[in-house]
Structures are given as C-alpha cells and as structure tokens.
Simulated assay, not measured.
Amino acid sequence: MRRLCRAFSKKADHHRAAVALNYVAYKLRRVVRTLRVTPAMQAGITDHVWTLDELMDTLLTEAEDPTHEAKPLTHREPSAPARALPCGRGFLGLVTESTPALKKRRSKHPPPEATRGPVQLSLFAPPEGW
C-alpha cells in the first residue's frame, strides 16, 4: 500500500485509483488466515481466489463510471425557532414551550404536584395509601 501510494499519489485521481486497486486486490486475491478464504468469497461475491491476470483483464475491460458533478454543500434551514451561529456555520435550536421534544418529555413526566395532592403527615397515623 505504501509503495502504491507513493508511486501514484502525485494527483488526487491517481491516489484514489491506487487505493481502490489495493482494496480490490485485498478483497479478491488475499486469503485471510482466520477465514481461510478471501473476503469476497466469504461474502458470496465470488467462488474462487482470483489470479492477477484475471483481475487485470476484468479491470481493463470494464467500462468507466460516468463522473459525477460535485455539488456545493448548503446548510439546512431550521424547522423550529433557531438562532444563527457566528460566521454562517449553521443554527442553534432554541427550546421553547412549543418545541415538540419538550412537549413529549413533559407528557411522559408530569410535574409531581400535578399527580398528587399535598401530603399531610401525622405522628400517630400512617399516611393515606399505606
């Protein structure tokens, strides 16, 4: 891997090709000691260990994938109340009474005073419900 990266890494495209070639060779040609087969055989992709000639013939006859155009990344627009972070790095969500997560949490755990009335203790009688 080091030798391939150093020899072909003068351009980013060459580096990507060298790394991809290394991964393909590892998956199709190298028998992993713990598996006793190649990773591609273990996954059911192939039924034999590929030779170097077979690998090179397949790589040279395959059509190249069309290149995809890079699209600029854009920030999502907030769906709830939010405050913009400095330097246009995104938004910080604000928690308000109408925030759905806050409503959900409050419905699961109502405040204690809403569930029971005031507690009156007596020294001689046990509290109600004992």
Rank of each mutant, 00 (worst) to 15 (best):
R3W: 13
L4N: 07
R6S: 15
F8N: 12
F8D: 12
K10R: 03
K11Q: 09
A12S: 05
A12R: 14
A12M: 14
A12T: 08
H14I: 00
H15E: 09
H15Y: 08
A20P: 02
L21H: 06
N22D: 09
Y23I: 12
V24K: 07
K27Q: 08
K27V: 08
R29W: 00
R30S: 13
V32S: 03
R36A: 03
V37I: 00
V37K: 12
T38G: 02
P39Y: 04
M41N: 04
M41I: 01
M41L: 05
Q42W: 14
Q42E: 10
G44H: 15
T46L: 09
T46A: 07
D47E: 11
D47P: 10
W50I: 03
T51F: 10
L52W: 08
L52M: 03
D53G: 07
D53R: 10
M56A: 02
D57M: 05
E62F: 00
D65C: 02
T67G: 13
E69N: 06
E69V: 09
A70C: 11
K71M: 05
L73Y: 04
L73E: 12
T74M: 03
T74R: 03
H75G: 07
E77K: 11
P78Q: 07
S79N: 00
A80F: 07
A80N: 05
A80L: 11
P81N: 03
P81H: 09
A84K: 13
A84P: 15
G88A: 04
G88R: 05
F91V: 14
L92D: 01
L94E: 08
E97S: 08
S98D: 12
S98H: 15
L102E: 09
K103N: 06
K104C: 11
R105Y: 01
S107I: 04
S107V: 05
H109I: 11
H109A: 13
H109E: 15
P111H: 01
P111D: 03
P112F: 01
A114D: 10
T115A: 00
T115S: 09
R116E: 00
G117L: 06
G117M: 10
F124L: 14
F124Y: 02
A125E: 09
P126G: 00
P126A: 06
